[in-house]
Amino acid sequence: MNAERNTGAESTLEARALKKSYGDFEAVKGVDFRVFGGECFGFLGPNGAGKTTTMKMIYGAVIPTAGELAVAGLDVYHHEREIKRRIGVVPQENNLDDELKVRENLLIYGRYYDLPRKVVLQRTDELLDFMQLSEKAEATVEQLSGGMKRRLLIARALINDPEIVVLDEPTTGLDPQARLLVWDRLRELTTEGKTLILTTHYMEEAARLCDRLVIMEGGLIIADGTPGELVEEHVSPQVLELTADHRSLEELLSVVEGADSVERTGDETVLVYTEDADTLLENVRSSGVDIENTVYRQAGLEDVFLRLTGRRLIE
């Protein structure tokens, strides 16, 4: 693997007023973002937010309707092949070549980049090892578990030793253990200096992996920053999740009125954001409202999303 660090501050990806429409439907309604070399940059948002369309514009599977997009300093309208030579792509949908064995998937993919055979052979072995697939090298794609298929997709995206790796929902559909392994490998890639661009609708994934991220909804970027900044900027640090019988709910709402903000999710749960959860909880207890369940936790990106959109990320 390439151990060279590429931590220069020049932006490696830049979008301005980037748009994509399909007839009357605007999938991406004009977004601006900059990604710097060596960072992990995330697009967090629900399904249908325009994340995948944005990724596809980056790797050339969708041509923007308007706006500017430069990848690795190259304009996407005119340098399709050169951009694709320099990036790696992990698509949302598994499109491994089922007619080829695990190892062959990497060998044949390497040929598409016109890489010398020796280089492809060497990288294939390294990547199988890196993605913990060496034992499955001669297996068919069908014999792999979901997590292994995803790891093979990631290995395949690295065959050309790309500067930028675009990952569209790299862990969707994986069980927690498989997800942890993928996270671990992706973090390893950033330490090697690769730039990662990923989409996710798991806030835990965004919080753990991303140096910076944007939150997308309805084809627009509605917030951006580091995970910490986003939480700090948009919500109070402490959250009380209070569940009450729906008859007591009105009463509960009046008790927590003094909090920084209050969100209702579903019929019976109220999320209360505050700087001082102890005092608030004291107030609730002393008011005598019948609370069925209380959860106290630190605010996270999920709360930022709820605050900004009025709804949960995964519904």
Binding site: Y59, G60, A61, E80, R81, E82, K84, R85, V89, P91, E93, N95, L96, D97, D98, E99, Y109, Y112, Y113, D114, R156, N160
Partner: peptide, 14 residues
């Protein structure tokens, strides 16, 4: 069905 072409066109093969 297999989406083989979708995979190929993310490489320098158009």
């Amino acid at each position: 069905i297999d989406k083989i072409y979708d995979a190929i066109i993310t490489t320098p093969v158009n």
